[in-house]
Design a protein around this nucleic acid. Structure first.
Lengths: 196, 196
DNA sequence: GTCTATACTTCGATAGAC
DNA sequence: GTCTATCGAAGTATAGAC
């Protein structure tokens, strides 16, 4: 499982069937969780035979990695577009709370916790994403009233990202206590971080 | 699976074997993730036969619920002790970042996302825990310099909980960007939230 | 009350046919 | 390059022996 030194033949990367399997895997992941992403269920969702999963992907982990990379690259590109279009804290906040990203991250975080290859890939993207976000926050804040010295762009970003993640996770559970208050605060803060 | 209206006989709740299975399940959960919590592996960890899992627990979900409740009650009690001993923001922060709690929550959050019974139980405890924490924060802040109106105890708690969760998750991945800065800020903030 | 023998389903993966 | 036939291991759960 770690080495994967089998010499079984693997299908072409540009195969349409392969793309269908990745798409199906992502759907199953979001709807039923990573434990439900089995060769049989993914194939059924794609309308294909289970053995095809193992023809196009050496192991299930290889499939997970492809699903993750596809989503991560898309998120990456989307963030860059959004921040170029309107560089503001509000745009950062939107990107942190947008769509199915949270559910996706939750599944992969749980998966990464116990699978080395996936953890490495996720850490890699997380670092890159954080760096990109940090540059954006620093740039946005530099054009405004200065904040107290202790409140660096890192601190602002960690707080926004942390609260966004927490709210998303609790929403999934059906818990909402404190959310309205936090969102009301952010509603003011995002446009006026210095509080003047 | 949802109803569980089987009339199969189930072992006594005070059985020692049953307790061993719960303990073993928790270990497997933390070490290998929720997908690895199967009757065979739990039993192997406990040095028992796989069929015993199904004698003491109607389904695997019942086992998960027992594992969750045990940990949740323990966390509940521990928070109450700690906050009674030293009521401070620092104690709140410690309780949010303490031990294996984050890994445990991550596993159960992912599980809860797709299993109704577990989601309900987790939501229930999350609400209770949040209420308890909120009372503590409000009580602590009321004995200090007042904060700006917009920064209610809810806002403080959501920020602390969010950042604590984010740092824990990223640490598990091996990502550390921004952590030192956020922790340095908190180091000052926890003792002096009004920033005077 | 406690545990075992057993049924049946689903799993990942490979070797080999087209 | 693409897909299928098939294997052995692991999964949940139940009925029945002690």
């Amino acid at each position: 499982m770690t080495t994967g030194s089998s010499n079984r033949r693997i299908g072409a990367e540009d195969s349409g069937t392969r793309a269908r399997l990745i798409e199906a895997a992502e759907q199953v992941l979001l709807e039923e969780g990573y434990a439900a992403v089995t060769s049989r269920r993914v194939a059924a969702r794609a309308g294909l035979k289970p053995q095809l999963v193992h023809y196009y992907f050496r192991t299930m982990d290889h499939l997970f990695l492809e699903v993750f990379r596809r989503r991560a690259e898309a998120g990456f590109a989307q963030f860059q577009r959004a921040i170029a279009d309107e560089p503001s804290l509000r745009t950062i906040w939107s990107s942190l709370t947008h769509g199915t990203g949270s559910a996706f991250n939750l599944e992969f975080a749980a998966l990464a916790n116990h699978r080395k290859a996936i953890r490495a890939e996720m850490a890699n993207y997380a670092e890159r994403f954080r760096t990109m976000q940090l540059e954006a926050v620093a740039s946005i804040l530099s054009g405004r009233e200065p904040l107290p010295d202790a409140i660096t762009p890192d601190v602002v970003l960690m707080a926004l990202a942390g609260v966004a993640q927490l709210i998303a996770l609790e929403r999934a559970l059906g818990v909402s206590g404190g959310h309205d208050e936090a969102l009301a605060f952010l509603e003011r803060y995002l446009d006026n971080p210095a509080g003047t």
